[in-house]
């Protein structure tokens, strides 16, 4: 077995601090995330998990420290290059963030349109991804007509359709029943098995125990030194 840590890091964080006014969301976080790694970011609510993910795609910027994504130093990235950075990521949000006035198909196709994919190639790609997540039959539906699990499947489809290098999932199963959570997790594993890097922020201990992937723990913004890291063959 070759551990993911044998591969070069795709994300590097050096002494990262993030403050909101006087509130410390992240304190001196130094972390490497490797190519094709499946990583859980764990910790209680308010520990800084979501903040950590947002720093990676510049949803927020660091107060101090450096973040490198695939060799790009985010402190020095120009405003114009931010869309290029974000195209390296597929992001899955707990609240799905689907556009309610667009159909399932249009929500997923939007990513390909935004990255300038030729419009003739878009329908085939979107259909295949919707088939992968089992939502092809609901392509013409609008998000408000879908269940939470279905919406999260669409969100995963949107995250993977642009063939990103990394999936960031922020509490992807937080509001789902266990069956739906399993389906979403299987989809993330499929992406990982195809060579992608997956970073999941969750406090769902069952999910973590079930997989055995590397875990980092955050507590009140501090990275815990005794991170219980264990590996599951299926995830490396």
């Amino acid at each position: 077995m070759m551990d993911a840590v044998d591969k070069p890091p795709i994300i590097r964080m050096f002494h990262v601090h993030r403050y909101f006014g006087g509130q410390k969301a992240l304190v001196d976080v130094t972390l490497d995330i490797y190519k094709n790694e499946f990583l859980f970011v764990s910790g209680p609510s308010g520990a800084g998990k979501s903040t950590l993910l947002r720093l990676l795609y510049l949803g927020e910027s660091v107060t101090e420290g450096q973040v490198l994504v695939d060799g790009m130093n985010l402190s020095r990235i120009s405003q114009k290059r931010i869309p290029m950075l974000r195209r390296k990521f597929g992001i899955v949000f707990q609240d799905y963030k689907l556009i309610p006035t667009k159909t399932v198909y249009e929500n997923v196709a939007l990513v390909l349109e935004a990255i300038g994919k030729h419009r003739r190639l878009i329908p085939k790609k979107v259909r295949s991804v919707l088939r992968l997540v089992g939502m092809e039959a609901r392509a013409a539906s609008f998000p408000p007509a879908l269940s939470g699990g279905e919406q999260q499947k669409v969100a995963v489809a949107r995250a993977v359709v642009g063939d990103p290098d990394i999936i960031l999932a922020d509490e992807p199963t937080g509001s789902l029943d266990s069956d739906s959570a399993d389906v979403i997790f299987d989809l993330l594993k499929t992406f990982h098995n195809r060579g992608g890097t997956v970073v999941v922020a969750t406090h769902d201990q069952n999910l973590i125990r079930k997989t055995g992937a590397r875990i980092i723990r955050l507590d009140r913004g501090h990275l815990q030194p005794s991170a219980d890291t264990c590996y599951d063959d299926s995830l490396h």
């Binding site: 869309p83 974000r86 195209r87 992001i91 963030k97 689907l98 006035t101 990513v111 935004a114 642009g162």
Partner: peptide
Amino acid sequence: EVTIMRLVGAT
């Protein structure tokens, strides 16, 4: 919608 478009890499 604009926020989501930006998050998925739209210029």
